[in-house]
Nucleic acid binder design. Structure first.
Lengths: 338, 338
DNA sequence: TATATTTGTTTAATCGATTAACCAAAAGTA
DNA sequence: TACTTTTGGTTAATCGATTAAACAAATATA
């Protein structure tokens, strides 16, 4: 089996011209005659020539690779974002390398090292829940390549960001629940140290006040928002003397956990307790009752993040000017709340 | 902002030694003194040296990159396989590049081109449903790098394969349904041209015969197995004069579609019709009733595929000897069938 | 006719790390 | 002492593609 791949030199030898001419011919340089170009392309095809990306990337100083870091690909939101990013970047001649942190800070650091090692031209990331130490992200910046964050960002890091308006989303949810007649609305949220969860909590608190509802400390819970977490936290809420009549959960997965417990306990949703999730994961429309949720426009987020990256490349000196894009979200009302 | 990255030369200059010495020191060559090694590592750290993967890969002729092609990452099965593959490969010093075909033949060809262009050291793939033309896969083989298929393979292609025993899985399902008292079992399967779906269909037919059940042509349907497809095909089965009392669907997504329709029509599952899916996607345990399904041991598949790949590298001449690994699957019985 | 310009290509350097081949100095051995 | 071996490097070529600079030949211009 022929392990050697065809190189420019092979083509050059066949035609008895220099490799430079071959390179230029393939890159459609104006200084090469049409005749030569045709001949080169012909031979390239015959020899099944496959350009060596490593060599050209090394020479040009650009790998045409974009690194992507997501908490996990196995989430509809993230995989959709990645898909739409990929579309935009592919068109611009970039390939993407997807890595997952699995919400682990350590893995995230490894991912960053790997991507820098692969000489990516930029990194688009959504931070792990665990991440509080930003030194690794600073490392990216000091490497001189663009860094764009989406969904899970950080104010302290002076970089571009694309995400939805979490604060307003909470307002939309509370307004909807109030319209449905709810008087005691609980919130199972994420940890405040994560910007997006903090914003959802702030939105919840402000909206509750705005509607003159009781702001009860026991109705606000911080958790890591896994499915199992949702199960545990709803139990706490159900154990209260004065039960809530609605629960707004900051993640669909945790909302699903809560729903499971409610069903197991034969508590009717939405009649006895109304439930709202966040993220519009596909299963929210599949379970019974279907879960009201917030759609985050994953396709738009991916597209904008990719375009923001493209705006930076080809600039000689990277000037990371803060460029925060905040999209409006959309409330998808389903059976669990009406 | 400092856009220039530290190179071996920079370190060499600081210490007034040759770049060769620096390279050897960092690679722990025996011919370099401990003193020099220490000094080099020290300076490398101070200058925040990041080796240039492109350069070393070019020189060594190995990119230490493995290309992965899956129909989509947004499926629990595939993302789990990828995750476990990644674990094994990372440990061996390889990074992976994940690409998705979205079940499109055209996208799959593009992915293959991209991966070859990036000089990956091997490709691990699961074929798109659409794919029947194998010339692009032949291209990988003629490139001299190992190709390993998993789940969606092809007999005609003379390469390694890791998957589960689809034929036996069908037998397990039918045996289970028969034990539950079912007499008319339908099968909503995939297209026969895809090996795994063909095997599931063969298993279904043989198992039906084995249990002396009526083998009725109208009970066997071929489809593309999307959720929407599941909805449409179950409608057909319900329209039959002689309805089935159980339906075995070759994909969880289509099974979910079928379940939705059954619920909408107030047909009780499992009392009136029993339902079995395939793949053990997480939602099968989340919906009501939970769906009986087949677990494919995604972690094992990923691990084995990765290890098969590792078995090939470091060999000078690739001898692709057929190496088919068929794992046993596991039936997870849930409410939809008992 | 003499000079300038254009066309089409070659030469050679380069990207950064690796490595075969070579070499000087120190240490060991007969 | 004279020769061999070991130690700790250095030099220079290399991977394959790109590109600045050079250049010969053809064509245009004065």
């Amino acid at each position: 089996m022929n392990k050697k791949r065809t190189t420019l030199k092979d083509i050059a030898n066949v035609l008895s011209i220099s490799t430079a001419a071959v390179s230029k011919a393939l890159n459609d340089d104006t200084r090469i005659s049409v005749k030569t170009k045709k001949a080169v392309r012909q031979v390239a095809k015959e020899l099944n020539y496959q350009p060596n990306h490593l060599a050209s990337a090394l020479r040009k100083g650009k790998s045409k690779l974009v690194g992507v870091i997501v908490p996990r690909t196995n989430s509809h939101f993230f995989s959709s974002v990645v898909e739409s990013m990929e579309g935009v970047l592919n068109k611009a001649g970039y390939n993407i390398i997807i890595t997952q942190s699995n919400e682990s800070f350590e893995k995230e650091c490894n991912n960053i090292d790997t991507l820098l090692y692969l000489q990516v031209d930029g990194i688009i990331a959504s931070m792990a829940n665990e991440t509080v130490d930003l030194s690794y992200y600073e490392k990216i910046k000091s490497n001189g390549i663009p860094l764009i964050l989406f969904d899970r960002g950080e104010n302290d890091l002076n970089v571009d960001y694309v995400g939805i308006n979490d604060y307003d989303s909470s307002h939309m949810i509370i307004a909807h629940l109030v319209a449905q007649g709810c008087k005691r609305i609980a919130h199972i949220g994420g940890y405040r140290r994560t910007r997006i969860f903090n914003n959802r909590i702030r939105g919840y608190i402000d909206a509750i006040k705005k509607h003159d509802l009781p702001h009860d400390d026991e109705l606000l819970i911080e958790s890591s928002l896994t499915l199992e977490d949702g199960r545990q936290q709803i139990e706490k809420l159900l154990a209260l003397k004065n039960r809530p009549d609605a629960v707004y959960v900051a993640s669909d997965y945790a909302a699903l956990g809560a729903l499971q417990v409610l069903k197991e306990k034969n508590i009717k949703v939405p009649e006895e307790i109304k439930l709202v999730g966040f993220g519009n994961e596909p299963f929210t429309s599949l379970v019974t009752p279907s879960i009201t949720s917030i759609s985050q426009h994953s396709d738009k987020i991916g597209k904008l993040a990719a375009e923001t990256f493209l705006g930076y490349v080809d600039q000689d000196v990277i000037v990371q000017s803060l460029n925060k894009i905040i999209l409006d979200s959309e409330l998808i009302v389903r059976s669990s709340s009406e």
